[in-house]
């Protein structure tokens, strides 16, 4: 397709926004239905067939609610934080190739850009918690910062390992390298690093922690911190946080798919294309939901212990191992 550049840009901005919006809305539905199935209950059934219009009803409800700005909050930052939370998720999606042809931008340093923007997400939640002038929100903000510092490091180490193996930060090239069949996927490139599945597990755990999902939902921790950083937010302010959470899950799962599971490459070597990408990505999203409704929350300090005492040493070890193997073999 050879569209004029501004038109192409506009199309992708709209596309990304629609994708994020639809995902956020319908992942809520999937989560509610899925949770209901795990808990032997029907879940939403009233609005539309099988409750399919429930997200729309929810959105209407949230939008019709008053945006309460409590007295004493830093009103500029308080309003800014939800926007800042949503924006990086959208920006990350702009770099993610859905297939050979479908990508907003094919950037050579896409990987750097994704991680740069996903860090802003943390800052924004912290900002919201801090601006709320609520003790629960401040505890939550403090937790988020230490949690994300702890988990960015092993995630980065894993990604560096991967970049060493692939020799590129271009997501499309990374996926292209995994063409062929399932054993070409980075997950199974055991000849370069026999610990590759371990690095995938580390990446997955870090992704759960970065997106503040159970069992690492320290930021929200509804039985401890009421709603954490989002306690003071009402209406769509809360709704945007909610959407951003799902957008971040989508970004995280999409990255995991691209980096480890061969992106849009088919596991049997033929018929590669966008359905494979979506299938793998949503399977990961489903597993994230599954984990949430299965496990209790971890303690905060064991969460940090897990990162600093287990994940970082192991990911460092895989990094060194990869370096040695690349040098020797």
């Amino acid at each position: 397709m050879n569209l004029p550049e501004p038109f192409r840009l506009l199309l992708f901005v709209l596309g990304t926004m629609a994708f994020v919006g639809a995902n956020a809305a319908y992942l809520v539905w999937v989560e509610r239905k899925g949770a209901a199935r795990f808990q032997r209950r029907p879940g939403p059934t009233e609005v539309g067939p099988a409750g399919l219009l429930q997200p729309i009803a929810d959105a209407l409800k949230l939008m019709s609610k008053q945006l309460i700005v409590p007295p004493g909050v830093d009103s500029i930052l308080f309003r800014l934080a939800p926007i800042l939370v949503m924006m990086p998720a959208m920006m990350c999606l702009a770099t993610i190739p859905f297939s050979e042809a479908l990508a907003a931008r094919n950037i050579n340093v896409a990987l750097v850009m994704v991680f740069a923007f996903s860090s802003i997400n943390v800052m924004a939640i912290m900002l919201g918690g801090w601006a709320s002038r609520n003790k629960y929100a401040i505890i939550s903000a403090a937790r988020i910062v230490s949690q994300n510092i702890a988990y960015e490091i092993p995630m980065m180490l894993v990604v560096i390992t991967l970049v060493m193996m692939t020799g590129t930060m271009n997501l499309r090239e990374i996926v292209d390298q995994q063409a062929g069949a399932i054993w070409h996927w980075n997950l199974f490139r055991l000849d370069e690093n026999p610990l590759m599945p371990v690095t995938f597990v580390i990446f997955y755990i870090c992704m759960l922690a970065e997106t503040n999902r159970a069992p690492f939902d320290m930021a929200e921790a509804e039985s401890e911190l009421v709603a954490g950083a989002f306690t003071e937010y009402a209406g769509m302010g809360f709704g945007v946080y909610f959407m951003a959470e799902y957008a971040n899950i989508v970004v995280g799962c999409a990255l995991a798919t691209l980096l480890f599971l061969g992106g849009w490459q088919s596991p049997i070597g033929v018929w590669s294309g966008i359905p494979w990408f979506l299938l793998k990505m949503y399977a990961l999203v489903f597993s994230v939901i599954w984990v949430r409704w299965t496990f209790p929350r971890t303690q905060f300090y064991s969460l940090l212990n897990l990162s600093w005492k287990i994940l970082i040493p192991v990911s460092l070890a895989t990094l060194v191992l990869t370096a040695i193997m690349m040098k020797i073999l």
Binding site: F38, Q39, R41, D217, E222, S223, F295, P296, R297
Partner: peptide
């Protein structure tokens, strides 16, 4: 539920 596991409550 206090520990953050929602599902056992329903069971």
């Amino acid at each position: 539920l206090d520990l953050g596991g929602f599902t056992p409550l329903l069971y």
